[in-house]
């Protein structure tokens, strides 16, 4: 379920302002047309595979539609949204999702930064270090999740009785969520580290040397020079991981099946779509997840302001 967009941060391209565009020669305009023509197949494919299902989901969310009783299908406007937003199961799943997202992304950011610095600074065995750090990201999430599930289950696992007092952490809400966050962090920290590593390479060595000459400490150099210069990379890394984490599904599906109040919003959508067979309510939840994710992206871009890739700077 968690699909990650594996895209290194693109440094903002110098854009033509409007006056320049007017002065474009005929040849340049033809080239622009050609550019659009070349993009067209990709745009059409994207509209077909991403746009159409999304539009259909939005349409379904306005319908009463039970897979079992297609005859009762009818347009009911926004009433599905009222049902979902007025239901405590939705808000509980929302809270759980927010907790998992905030905690796991925060830990991943700190760990990812540490790993990125290690990978950046290593002099010997660079390839080996990078490979070791990236291994968890190369594993299939479901396989890794099964590994954790066995590890944390008494009888099959080596961790169940070591750390927790109860001996069966996957049977308690708090401990289960901690295990889910651990599995998420273990799995996706390398992704975060990889994106941050790309950002580190944006920082010019000369600036750091100059700062050292001026007597800046290691922490000051990191905090006042490296971090600000990495801002676009950090935005991309944290934004992608937040959007991903908010849609968490596979780890929960394997580790707890949503029992003991550990279901995320994606899990709620799955249950209502696949067990409840309620296409209307299930689509409504999906659309609400989409809207939440869009809001998160909007807030991030506003928060980081000019550092956002693609902004006019």
């Amino acid at each position: 379920m968690t699909t990650t967009v594996d895209r290194p941060p693109v440094p903002p391209a110098p854009e033509l302002d409007r006056r320049d565009k007017k002065r474009l020669s005929k040849g340049a305009r033809a080239e622009e047309h050609l550019g659009w023509l070349l993009c067209l197949p990709a745009v059409i494919v994207l509209l077909a595979v991403a746009g159409a299902p999304m539009a259909y989901a939005i349409y379904l969310s306005l319908e009463r539609y039970d897979l079992r009783f297609p005859n009762l299908q009818k347009f009911i406007g926004l009433s599905n949204y009222g049902t979902v937003l007025g239901n405590h199961y939705w808000w509980r799943a929302f809270l759980i999702t927010v907790i998992i997202t905030v905690v796991s992304v925060a830990i991943e950011f700190v760990l990812g930064m540490v790993f990125a610095l290690i990978m950046h600074r290593t002099l010997v065995g660079k390839g080996l270090v990078r490979t070791l750090i990236l291994i968890p990201y190369g594993l299939v999430t479901v396989v890794a999740a099964y590994g954790w599930q066995y590890a944390w289950t008494p009888g099959t696992g080596y961790l169940a009785n070591v750390i927790t007092g109860t001996g069966a952490p996957l049977t308690h809400t708090g401990e289960s969520i901690a295990v889910i966050i651990l599995a998420e962090v273990w799995k996706t920290t390398p992704f975060m580290a990889l994106l941050l590593l790309a950002g580190l390479s944006l920082v010019s060595e000369d600036l750091l040397k100059a700062a050292r000459m001026d007597g800046a400490s290691a922490w000051q150099r990191f905090y006042s020079i490296t971090l600000p210069l990495m801002k676009p990379a950090i935005l991309v890394a944290v934004l992608f991981r937040t959007l991903d984490a908010f849609r968490v599904f596979d780890n929960i599906y394997i580790l707890t099946k949503g029992q003991n109040n550990t279901g995320s919003v994606s899990f709620l959508a799955y249950d209502n779509l696949f067990t409840g067979l309620n296409l209307g309510l299930g689509s409504t939840i999906s659309v609400l997840i989409f809207v939440t994710v869009a809001i998160i992206a909007f807030i991030f871009v506003k928060l980081f302001g000019a550092a956002a890739p693609g902004s006019d700077d």
Partner: peptide
């Protein structure tokens, strides 16, 4: 029974 509400 009225097909209302979410299932958790």
């Amino acid at each position: 029974l009225d097909q209302k509400g979410l299932i958790p």
